[in-house]
């Protein structure tokens, strides 16, 4: 196989991990809405925690992105 093609395929596979981040964010935001709608008084506090968790979850997807970038452009 052409090494260049293998690179692109590998980068594409690495980007699949973003699906996991998407599922995680869906669960996170869904649960936030659930909690915030059940108890609107607590939503301000939940929002801060949600933002922190959002960043942590998103980081997982971004690490996949970095891996894809490394495959494409490193070396």
């Amino acid at each position: 196989m052409d090494p260049q093609a293998a690179k692109y395929i590998g980068a594409g596979i690495a980007a699949l991990a973003l699906g996991g981040a998407g599922i995680g964010l869906g669960i996170l935001f869904g649960n936030f809405m659930n909690g915030a709608l059940r108890n609107p008084a607590a939503s301000a506090k939940l929002f801060g925690n949600m933002m922190l968790t959002f960043a942590l979850v998103e980081a997982t997807g971004l690490i996949a992105f970095v891996v894809a970038m490394l495959i494409l452009f490193a070396a």
């Binding site: 960043a55 942590l56 998103e58 980081a59 971004l62 690490i63 992105f65 970095v66 970038m69």
Partner: peptide, 16 residues
């Protein structure tokens, strides 16, 4: 590692 890669990846991804 996680602390630095999180920040780095977020910035790079957005700008790319």
């Amino acid at each position: 590692m996680s602390l630095s890669v999180r920040l780095f990846a977020n910035m790079v991804a957005g700008h790319v």
